[in-house]
Design a protein around this nucleic acid. Sequence first.
DNA 1: CTGAAAGCGCTTACAG
DNA 2: CTGAAAGCGCTTACAG
Lengths: 348, 348
Amino acid sequence: MATMQDVAQRANVSIATVSFTVNNTKPVSAATRAKVEAAMRELGYQRNVVGRALASKRTRIIALLFPALQHTFSGTVVQFFTSAAATARELGYNLVLWPISNEAGQTTELTSSGLVDGVVLMEVELDDPRVQELLESGTPFSLIGRTRDPAEMTYVDINFEDTLVEAVRHLTSLGHRRITLLDDAIGSRSLAAFGPVGRSRASYEAEMARQGLEPSSFTCDATPAAGKAAAAELLGDFPDTTAVIIQNELAATGFVSGLRSAGRRIPDDISVLSVGSSVEMAAMADPELTVMSSPGTELGRMGVEALIDQLEGRASKLRQELVMCRMEGGKSTAPPSPVPGHGNHGDA
Amino acid sequence: MATMQDVAQRANVSIATVSFTVNNTKPVSAATRAKVEAAMRELGYQRNVVGRALASKRTRIIALLFPALQHTFSGTVVQFFTSAAATARELGYNLVLWPISNEAGQTTELTSSGLVDGVVLMEVELDDPRVQELLESGTPFSLIGRTRDPAEMTYVDINFEDTLVEAVRHLTSLGHRRITLLDDAIGSRSLAAFGPVGRSRASYEAEMARQGLEPSSFTCDATPAAGKAAAAELLGDFPDTTAVIIQNELAATGFVSGLRSAGRRIPDDISVLSVGSSVEMAAMADPELTVMSSPGTELGRMGVEALIDQLEGRASKLRQELVMCRMEGGKSTAPPSPVPGHGNHGDA
DNA sequence: CTGAAAGCGCTTACAG
DNA sequence: CTGAAAGCGCTTACAG
């Protein structure tokens, strides 16, 4: 590997001049630039990032902190990782994967080793101890998700509020009045901890109320089996439901097959709208689910951009962005069928 | 951040001595060690990895090269990433995510920047140009997968050969004789390029022949819709099939619902064994598929271990390991039902 | 526009 | 067992 020193020698200039032309950090005459670039080409020179990092006190490495154990399987995580890594690279950075098992002081180990310039934090909780650690350590960071009160922090999150409003409206515009929300037990069990479930449910209830409808919601674990059981529960506890909003990616296929096993046709007898899932996962169900898809790619890109803007001093103002889930075609929502015995048979 | 210099000053020793005690790289008297450790504790010292990297010419960073665009969605990738990153960390390394779009010289950009000590390469093809690049650059690497002739390379791969043998035997021991293989069109279209499909199909055919059975196989794209279409194709082209081995994670749920739509019960009328999928994805089907699950976690761990062993000179001999897929409980395989009109009704 | 030199925070022969 | 010193490959005031 040729060093900057080698290039300087061959081009008959100082090492400083090579640095200036490589980095465009000071004006260099055309003639000098030509000499230096020729030398670099001839030597196949590429600047060593470690030397640069030590001298400039910036490694241009950022870390992606993610929970190692939970949520190990989800349709959007790979998209998120990929787009985060690709965006980092486009912007001249490298992305280190940093799995953390729990709230212990593992972030400090990272940030005080000097390896990274900043951190992207995934799966943020409403009162996240890791956020506190990061604040105290002075490490620049961006959040995917947000704490209860993220007033002063850079974050990118899904706009659950508007997403649920759109979900409800999609169904009411089809004519549904009895709409039940099925969400994720992990979140509900500790509404105090995890934002998405609470924010979504609140928004669902508000929109239902706004439309003069009665909200009803329940919960199940994030597995196909739990989804299947939830289908039975729905039919028992909310028998006149004509449409379900399900915000539980891993339970969705099971939920659908549970309904089918019970003789319900989708969407003829009951509509199902999946929220916050990946398109790929929604396509696993039979029929393919109508889905408001989680913007994994966008979140990855924006989270990294927000962090790097901050690192480069380009962040004119605090960046706090929300992204909607996007409504995708699917075959699981339709107008409700006329309900026999409710006085409106003969409609259609 | 306290530096090694600060620690040395406070402990009244030389910076070299601090280095020796931190790294256990030369003997240090108990008294000196105590002084140094006290100073480190008092200052909250943590060794700066960039300084260390520059001086030692080893960054202790390894890169995970993966295809950015294709295969963006799969059940085992997250497991793989997580276990690779966790293993790296346990061994004192960091894992950088490096998405590459195609075969272009993108690996050179990485390896000649001095950022990484070595590379783990995913999705290796039979004649992989990236492997050639890595060999030429002299970068240590380990492969997840293997080239056509990986004689001299460190690799970790799935043992498709034995896995398919076990798959066939599982079904024949249940009594099946007509067993069809459905695999992934991506691989079949360029059998010349991608190893798993070719190796699996060859092993399937060999084992069928060994048992005196006639092999039959076909192919579909990696989507639920393609799987559904494949179900119809199976019933048309291989009407007497009683069991299917499907090596196409994303098509599996669709394939199953296609069979069901056509009035076939699983496993009563037809058994389905999914190979190389994740348990989670197999659980999405209805019924939950019997699956030989892809060892994503093991591959991630072993691939990183193999690379780091090499980097630390611990690799006594060339490490080449194969891991079987593991048979998991499921509800989609059973003995064949007696076939009316084939002369053996009345059995069972 | 260009260069000499200090310095980033460590490791590692070399000497004692 | 311990230390003085060179050096890893750069960047960046400072001077001209």
